[in-house]
């Protein structure tokens, strides 16, 4: 088990390292941050641009810039934003909790909805409830999340005036971003729960439980659902990357000041330190969740360890 853990950990560190290298390299392929900073300036000269580049440390070779970034990250120093010189660590510390709040709350709401719906669909397989749930889930899968976000703004903010269309200042501002994300997630998760349930319900111990005369809810939620939990948890762990990706887009529409908004602005402004930090932090989180899933698998299923 120790060797297995070490191997997985080394692989995870390697993946994060490759991600940092790719991001640092890719963002430098096009555009010039000095020019972005000087946007709108009256009489900017090449000398002025050189001064700005020197002040930002962009006159150094790529390897020096990259090693500076990696060294800083290892020391917990994410550098300063090109746009305004704000410490990147402070920006991430402000944005990351907001993104995680959105992601986990959406996931929670989605599970609350998809488990009972998925169970019902499985129990009444082929019936009208199953058909309806499957069709609605198919429609949900086909929505782009930004479209749903826009429709919600239209209905709940503009037509009804119930909820603020953007911002992160109040509890009510959380409702629409969470609902948008949760709807998209639920569409997938319902199908997942249904499939897992169907498989479990055909197992012999369910027949035993039923023949014991247990109430149907007890059979479903205590016996069957517990046994579906393992594939569900695994899948949700793997879904985490996609979840973060979805949050990025939804944040933009609702002007939610999280990691997605940071990344969006940083790409547009070629703000290297901010983008590098945001991508590294998110990549590290996704890799960590996957590592955790791997480890749990290894614990549960000894065959994986010798793989």
């Amino acid at each position: 088990m120790g060797a297995f853990l070490l191997r997985r950990l080394a692989l995870a560190v390697f993946v994060v390292f490759v991600v940092t290298l790719l991001v640092a390299w890719a963002i430098r392929l096009s555009g010039d941050p000095a020019m972005m900073l000087a946007d709108g300036a009256g009489s900017i000269t090449e000398q002025d641009l050189r001064n700005i580049r020197a002040a930002l440390g962009l006159d150094r070779p790529f390897t020096a810039q990259y090693l500076g970034f990696i060294g800083g990250m290892l020391r917990g120093d994410m550098g300063h934003s090109f746009m305004g010189g704000t410490p990147v660590a402070r920006m991430v510390a402000q944005a990351l909790p907001l993104t995680l709040l959105l992601a986990f709350l959406s996931l929670g709401v989605s599970l609350l909805a998809s488990i009972p719906l998925g169970v019902q669909a499985a129990v009444h397989r082929g019936g009208w409830a199953d058909q309806t749930i499957r069709i609605i889930s198919l429609i949900g899968l086909s929505f782009p999340n930004f479209w749903l976000a826009i429709m919600m703004v239209l209905v709940f903010s503009i037509a009804l005036g119930w909820l603020p269309p953007s911002g992160a200042g109040s509890l009510s501002a959380l409702v629409m971003p969470v609902l948008t994300m949760a709807t998209i997630l639920t569409a997938t998760n319902v199908r997942l729960v249904r499939t897992a349930m169907l498989e479990t319900l055909s197992a012999q111990y369910i027949t035993v439980a039923r023949s014991k005369g247990l109430a149907e809810t007890v059979v479903l939620y205590r016996h069957a659902l517990r046994n579906c939990a393992i594939p569900l948890i695994t899948y949700i762990g793997l879904q985490f990357g996609g979840l973060i990706g979805g949050v990025v887009v939804v944040e933009r529409v609702f002007n939610w000041p999280g990691m997605g908004s940071l990344a969006f602005d940083a790409v547009a402004a070629r703000d290297y330190p901010v983008l590098q930090a945001v991508v590294t932090v998110l990549a590290a989180m996704i890799v960590a969740v996957n590592l955790l899933v791997d480890i749990v698998y290894g614990l549960v299923d000894p065959r994986v360890r010798t793989e």
């Binding site: 005036g161 933009r252 002007n255």
Partner: peptide, 17 residues
């Protein structure tokens, strides 16, 4: 309030935000 998307700005204006 810093709102990047012009359409979100208009939605905020219409809803009184």
């Amino acid at each position: 309030r810093f709102i990047v998307e012009p359409n979100t700005q208009v939605a905020e204006l219409q809803s009184g935000g």
